[in-house]
Amino acid sequence: MNSFQTYRKLFASTFYLSAFTFGGGYVIVPLMKKKFVDELHWIEETEMLDLTAIAQSAPGAMAINASILIGYRIAGFIGAIVTILGTVLPPLIILSVISLFYQTFQSNQIVKIVLKGMQAGVAAVVIDVVYTMAKGIVSQKQLLPIIIMIISFIAGYFLSINVMYIILICGVFGAVNGFHEEKARKERS
């Protein structure tokens, strides 16, 4: 694939994903994973998780941050610009059109029902990808990642702890653990 084709594919993919990302930040990650990891094989699954963590740690909208990272990873700086455009244009176009006649749109019964039904689909997409990813973590057969996953879930879902703190604590914990493993390896050798 030459670079022009790559840019075009990147733009089309992010435009398409962005146009269907109902329900906020984390919904775009499963969609991106399906597209760029499973379908196009441009990114590995662990790398996708790394990019998500980075996107979460930076300020701004998750969808924008994640697409900058994917664009940069696949086609460098120009790639990032292409994916930003692809991600920003759908909401920009849709909101511009809707702001012209938003009263009608908001009170339309059919629109409400389509959106309500789509929620079920969105839930299924997210749960499907989460299942695959969690299976990947569990199949490493290491205790620590599984414990981190369970505790983070409890912290995020049941205790409503700010996502930033969860990311920060897990990062620090991972760094300390990595440091210890490295030290143990050196002492053994």
């Binding site: 984390y26 662990t46 998780l49 790394d50 998500t52 963590a53 979460q56 989460v130 990813m133 969690a134 973590i137 990642p145 599984i146 981190i148 996953m149 369970i150 505790i151 983070s152 879930f153 995020g156 996502v163 969860i166 990311i167 897990c170 990062g171 620090v172 914990f173 991972g174 760094a175 300390v176 653990n177 990595g178 440091f179 493993e181 490295e182």
Partner: peptide
Amino acid sequence: GILKGLRPAVVAL
């Protein structure tokens, strides 16, 4: 190390 700690957390989130 950091990324190893973050990956399961991201899945959980």
